[in-house]
Amino acid sequence: MLDLATRAWEAVTGLYLGLRVTILALVRPKNTVKYPIEKVNVSPRWHGLLALPIDPETGSDMCIICFQCERVCPDRCIHIEATGRAKDRVLTRFDIEMDKCCYCGLCVEVCPTEAIVFVPHYEASTFNRSNLLYDLDDLRRATPKEPIAHGVVRIGGR
């Protein structure tokens, strides 16, 4: 009899404690983001899509064709080709296979001129896989018009 009473008491208290948490959550502020209408502000360091920003002074890319990013890419998804010699070198091909890319940011890290950056965009789903091969035009177009803080904000000290 006593055992039954103890068990009943445990069931009642357990139910009460659990339901209290649930009911308290009702009156707390909501944390649901209604995605297509509202959007989360992604952090400036967010590893989103890659882009080649255009230098406002010269009107061309900042890439100096050093092939560092192509060499460091763990997925080997960056393909660069150039024509010309020495200072007259012109970028003819800069392809990033966005479907193969693992968004690790090593290319952004090694780039000496910050020619390749992360942009805080992530919506790029497509019906066709070939759309995910970003060539030079796509990458230039992916750069937002306003200046963005990219993945190399370094702050020293505390």
């Binding site: 992604v42 899509l49 693992c102 789903s125 896989r129």
Partner: peptide, 29 residues
Amino acid sequence: KGIDQVVPVDVYVPGCPPRPEALIEGILK
């Protein structure tokens, strides 16, 4: 090398891993 070797794929969502928003965008698409 790609799930489309086994089943036909309708929407590709890039990202490694994609944000949940990116997945929702794929579903909306």
